[in-house]
Structure formats: structure tokens, C-alpha cells
Design a protein around this nucleic acid. Sequence first.
RNA 1: GGCGCUAUCGUCUAACGGUUAGGACGGAGCCCUCUCAAGGCUCAAAUACGGGUUCGAUUCCCGUUAGCGCUACCA
Length: 489
Amino acid sequence: MLRVRFAPSPTGYLHIGSARTFIFNWLYARRNGGTMILRIDDTDVERNTQESLDSIYEGLEWLDLSWDEFYRQSERGDLHRKAAEAIFAKGLAYRDFRTFTFEDLDLSKADVHAKFNPEMREMPKVESDMRAAAGEPFVLRFRVPRESRADVTFHDLVYGAQSKATADIEDFALLRSSGVPTYHMASCADDADLKISHIIRGQDHLSNTFKHVLIFEALGIEPPNFAHLPLLIAPDGSKLSKRKHGPVVSVTTYRDAGFLPQAFVNFVCLLGWSPKDNREVMSRQELIDSFSLEGINHSNATVNFTEQDPFDPKAVWLNSQHIRAVPVEQLAEQLLPFAAEAGFAADRAKMLQVTPLIHERIQLLRDVKTWADIFFLDPLPPYDKAELIPQKGDAAMATTVLEKARQVLATADFTADFTHDALDAALRAAAADLRVKTGQMFQPIRVAVCGRKVAPPLFETLEVLGRETTLKRIDQALQMLTAPPRTEN
RNA sequence: GGCGCUAUCGUCUAACGGUUAGGACGGAGCCCUCUCAAGGCUCAAAUACGGGUUCGAUUCCCGUUAGCGCUACCA
């Protein structure tokens, strides 16, 4: 029975790295018919926030990632404490009555006082029991078996054979002086109780795993399989942190910018994992079908964002690829909230008309704001009339072209058939009439109608805009061109 | 400081000792074309360094360097 878990501590927002860890666990479970467990590791009461928990749910919901079982560590304190007591009862842990804080430690020097403390480790049981009975606070420490064995080993499914000398493992804490279990204790007790078969987590836990193996053994159970994932890091090589890198690490930032969940998942999967066959754009099902631990590599992956652009260019490109795979009706629906956000009065019918014109041009859903504004804004934002002048042409040519266009489009033929095929034919004929190049004909019209040179294809645009708006905007352009130059004084 | 992990184009990665070191993003150029986008084609761009082992190392071993992680009564 394959059982995996994602165990976040609710102390920050769900960030891209945690999301990836969830996804790899999820993929592994779905690929192999296993059980996906969500366990909230909320033993650190001081730092937990409801806000953070909400953010985890919110992110997972957006990504449409599900789990089969759910647990909260804070509700399982008894289990953890009993496990610690069982270890103590076996003589595999001892009470440490010393008090010192993190600040007392100097990590730059070889400070081993937490590692080897014979006075506490070898304290006679009677004395230890007496001091405990007297109410003296203590930390329960694991007695690392340095006498009985030289090292601790395990096989990591990603990193291979791992080994560490017991002499290099300190006597870590199991229970705080408050009696609250530490992360190592709670996590292992839960993994044991929940019969987790594969622990798939960040590589930052690789060194901790030696301690965990010791705990599992002390609990009398076979350690689960371990698979550690290379970390996600920032372009400067530091690890992704909200404090240092801001909202770019939060998955909701991707959502709000208009990433598609399937694109986001696709992107993070490619960070540290490869299907090894050059495929890159992959659907969720393809990801499930091809996922394996063997495809995970060993070195950290950089999320390539900058100050100007918070999103990795590859993520953006992948998003554009996924957008193109979405059917028009569905995309239109997804675009609606982004249009509203941009201040457009967009309804379904209109969006359905507009969507095909921008479908291949937008990379993020929010790009609807810059691409589709011409269909929703009236009047157009002001633009420089110089834009109306075609390549190798002048204001006179622009005027001629626009007048001709106006005349053609105003003919009775178009009252019922203002469609791109008809417009195409008529406007091309008009260009030939005028003996100007098609580009010289179309560009002034485009600018008149869109207010800029870069826009969706002209005839489709005119069709969606409709004859009335088209003629009105051409007239406005004509006015700009013929208006007398403004004089000072 | 100690211990652990890692090291291929700018970035993500492929290459179970033998390849002109492949692909993708991004960049540059050309083509197509009503602009943009898309598409097609082309170019620039990498095995960190030093030793071994081997007929032959990106690949195996050692060292150096660098990065990351752990070293806490945080997770």
C-alpha cells in the first residue's frame, strides 16, 4: 500500500516550492494508485497562523489538487508524546536539565555542547528521576548510539546510498522543556502511525533523515522509503523566501496574473524533473503517466525571475501554450474576471467574439487588458496622430486612405454583411484603386480603429467592432488629421 | 568550524564510457505576412578547475573551488 504525504507547517504562504513538493507527492500517488495525505504540521503554536492555513487551501484548490486523507498534527499531541515516552522507556533517550538558548550557540565554531553532554547523558537514573520529580524542567534528548554503531545509513530513492557517522549526529531533542514534541518527534511518530510508505520532501531534510531513521528504529518500525527533492532557488542562489523575494514566491501571485493551473503545474514539474524525452508542454494526465522518481535530478533549480519580471520566461511561455489548448468558449469564460478587473464592461457574448482574436496573442490571462481594450473602451484612449501615417507615406496619404475606407464601408453592401471576408475583399480592392500597398492602406485604418499599430488582425477586428464604431473611429481619425495645427499665443 | 548534498549553454534540462555534447525558454537574424502573434529556417551559447582509471571520459575515482543544506527546546 503506497502512502505519501505533504506536511506543510502553516507559517507562511503556500509558495512555489511547497506547491511543487505537493505536486510530486500527488503525481507519485496518482501514478501508482497510492493514497495522498495532507497533514498540517502545526506543532509550533507561536508561529502558526490561520491566514497561512487559508493560503495553503486556497493554493491547492486553485491548482485543483486533491488529497485522500487529512490530519492536523496539533490534534495528535498525545500520540507524539507517547512515542517519545516509549523511546525514553527503552533507555534510548535521556533528560537534559541544562538550559540554553539558540543565541548561546556559535555555529561558526565547532560547538558540540548539544551533541555530547556526558553529564546529562550519563546521569544516573535515580538522580534524573529525582530532579524530574522535583519539577525541574528538562529537554528529552535522543541518545545517539555512538558506542554501538559507527554510522547510520539509508537508501534515498533520488540521491542513492546515504551514510553519516553517529559521531557527527548530535543528541537532538524529542520533547521541549514544555513537554511539547519537536518537529522530528512529531513528524516521525505521525509518519509511523499513518503508515507512510514514501516520504517525498525537500532536500533540506536530507541531513535530518539520519535522525529520523534513528527515531523510526527506536520506535521499532522499519523506516519508510525516502526521496528527497532538489530545492528551488532564486536567481542569486539563495533559497526562495517571501521576506527576501516578495510575492513572486506565492502561488496566488501566479493565479492572479492569469496563469492556468495546468501550466503552473507543468512548469514546476520541469524544475528538477524531466520525462527525458524532450517533451515540455504536458497535460496533467501526461504528467501522471510519465512521472517517476528516477526522472528527478540532484541539483537545485533556479526559478528565473527578475525585479522587472516576476515570472520565469519559461513559465510564461508554457502558459501561452496551455492557453492555446483551451477551447474558445472556456477561455472566454476564464477571461471574464480579468476583463472585469481591467475595468471592461465585458459580457459573455462579447467575450466570445473577442477571444478568438486574442487567443494566440496573450500569454497570461491578464493580457486581456492590453490586447482587448479596443473592444471595450469608448472612446479610445488618446493617441498621436502621427501613428496614422503609413510607411513611406504622409498625412495626405493617410487622409486619402481613410476617406476611401470610410466611403467603401459606408456603402449599402455592408449594412448586412460587415464580415471579415467581405471587408477583406473590399479594402484590398480599395487599396488597388488608390494604388497604395495593402500595408499602407490597412495600417492607417488599424490605428484609426485601435489607436495603435499593434493589434489583432484588422478585418476580424472591424467585424467585432461593428460598422457603426468603425465609421465613428475613422471619422475621429480624419478630424485629427485635418484639424489645423495648434498655435501658441 | 563540522557533516551532508550538488556542479552540462544566461535559465530549465538530455546524453545507462565512444554523439559534430541534443532539446526547450530567452537572445540575434531571415522567411511568411495587413501590424502583432503564430509558424518555418538559421545563428550565438555549456561539460567549474586539477589529477587519476581507461584504447577512450560530460559520464567512474580523488582533490580543489563554488553553491546549497543540516548543525535550535524552527519546521
